[in-house]
């Protein structure tokens, strides 16, 4: 899609790994924060063990790693409004949306009303959304 000289593509960032066992989750978040400056159509996906990245009440004191979980709540300020959570991944791990952080954004087209960024999506529906993307990064 072209908007004047500016190319706007659909970028998807797929997060599939638990937050602290490896560095993928943290470095993926670093990519997303940089990407936000490029005015592209961004969506994030949390699937498989990636759903653990958004668990509420994380405490990393004992493992000695930086607790970056608070950063996710800032995504709305970076204009990232589409955060897909795969339903089956939650269920397979005995989790529900209530176990995750509540992520919001302020809608500039609706008097800055606070809205949910999180979209619960089935595996089958997610496949369709992936298919619509121009670029899919998997971390």
């Amino acid at each position: 899609m072209e908007d004047g000289d500016q190319i706007i593509k659909k970028f998807m960032y797929m997060n599939r790994k638990a937050p602290y066992g490896t560095i993928y989750a943290w470095e993926s978040l670093e990519v997303v924060l940089i990407a936000a400056a490029f005015d592209q159509d961004i969506s994030l996906v949390f699937a498989d063990d990636g759903v653990y990245q958004l668990m509420d009440g994380q405490n990393t004191e004992e493992v000695g790693m930086k607790n970056f979980s608070k950063t996710y709540s800032a995504l709305g300020d970076y204009d990232i409004k589409k955060i897909y959570i795969e339903q089956e991944s939650l269920e397979e791990r005995g989790l529900s949306l209530g176990d995750l952080q509540d992520l919001k954004y302020e809608d500039e087209d609706d008097d800055w009303a606070e809205k949910d960024s999180i979209i619960l999506i089935s595996r089958a529906e997610l496949a369709k959304v992936i298919d619509e993307q121009d670029v899919v990064f998997s971390f």
């Binding site: 970028f11 940089i34 990407a35 400056a37 490029f38 121009d134 998997s138």
Partner: peptide, 20 residues
């Protein structure tokens, strides 16, 4: 260089292929 170079490759390229 910075991560912006990755995003730029996604914008400018016809395809982005990820190995990992």
């Amino acid at each position: 260089s910075g991560l912006g170079q990755l995003i730029e490759a996604g914008i400018q390229g016809d395809r982005m292929v990820v190995f990992g």
